[in-house]
Design a protein around this nucleic acid. Structure first.
Lengths: 185, 185
DNA sequence: GTCTATACGTAGATAGAC
DNA sequence: GTCTATCTACGTATAGAC
């Protein structure tokens, strides 16, 4: 993949976190990159094509984070929380999770993007469930709860809290993270 | 307030849940109501004016739900969860919480709407914290946790899970609600 | 209150020159 | 690859008739 192409994907990913997929325009990207709209269209003919590429970029980030944490030299019970921290670390200042942003626009998106977003959503939960299983079997996590239900609650609370953070400020989010950590011990 | 005005507000509220504030247009509303765009502009000159009215509508719904639950003849420890059920009950099929939708578009909205959204976000948490306090003091809720942190986690998880529900289906959401109920006993 | 008509900006997209 | 130019569609918004 060419440099420019990657550059466009990264910028689009940033814009999605800031204002959502439908809300950013090729003109936004063009101005920020110092080129014209037509040039962006050369790399991604339709906006949906760019959307797919961003989804794949997010998927790679997700897989990267999962592998990093899975192989990290820390105790198994610390991994679920470490995974969430890792995922949150790469967000833009005041940005929400890009997967959340895509879910919000879901109903207006082309079918191909909807399918990608489904995959992404499911994959993130699956990764987290896997880390929870390890924490229970190989680590010291004590819980009798359905791990899938626990996973979706903890991930959903992170996503939701990121949206509150944008509106109510940083402190809410860090409080919530502390709270969440408590549920993983 | 005239019938038509109320009708427009209700429809806008529905559209916000379905596709977000920025994503619905006066034309959408006009077509669904069988009038012209100009007629909607007569009732709400700017889209931001309609946005404010919808925020006030949401605020009334929130206060109504709070009062209903606060005065309900059920045990204090059941009230926090009842509040969440009450709030979720009025959502459109596959709709997300309108407050979440407004938070998602936050960065593009006029200042007056941003302020309203801040108030709404804070108010919902405050209501829930109050019900949690009662559940602890007058009810059987056993917890040593910071109630504000607990509130934001439970509310954020509900909001986040509604977005997942849209993409991954109903079952995730009901599982999450069960999980959440477990944290309130 | 609701209509027709219209202004004006911006969005996504394409054609063809360099 | 990037540009200029242009198209079409749609968004918010307004003027003025009924």
């Amino acid at each position: 993949m060419t440099n420019r192409k990657l550059q466009i994907i990264e910028l689009a990913l940033k814009k999605i976190q800031e204002k959502g997929f439908s809300a950013f325009s090729y003109d936004d990207l063009a101005k920020e990159l110092g080129v014209t709209k037509a040039s962006i269209h050369y790399h991604f003919e339709k906006k949906g094509d760019l959307g797919i590429a961003v989804c794949e970029r997010i998927q790679n980030g997700l897989e990267g984070a999962y592998t990093t944490i899975k192989e990290a030299a820390i105790n198994a019970e610390e991994k679920p929380f470490a995974f969430i921290l890792q995922r949150v670390k790469f967000l833009e200042q005041n940005g929400v999770c890009p997967i959340s942003a895509l879910q919000a626009d879901y109903n207006d998106l082309p079918l191909q993007m909807q399918e990608k977003i489904q995959q992404l959503s499911q994959m993130e939960i699956d990764c987290f469930v896997d880390l929870l299983k390890d924490a229970k079997q190989k680590g010291s996590l004590q819980t009798t709860e359905d791990l899938e239900a626990l996973a979706i609650m903890l991930i959903a609370s992170t996503k939701g809290a990121l949206q509150y953070k944008r509106v109510l400020g940083e402190s809410f989010f860090t409080k919530m993270l502390d709270q969440l950590k408590g549920h993983l011990q």
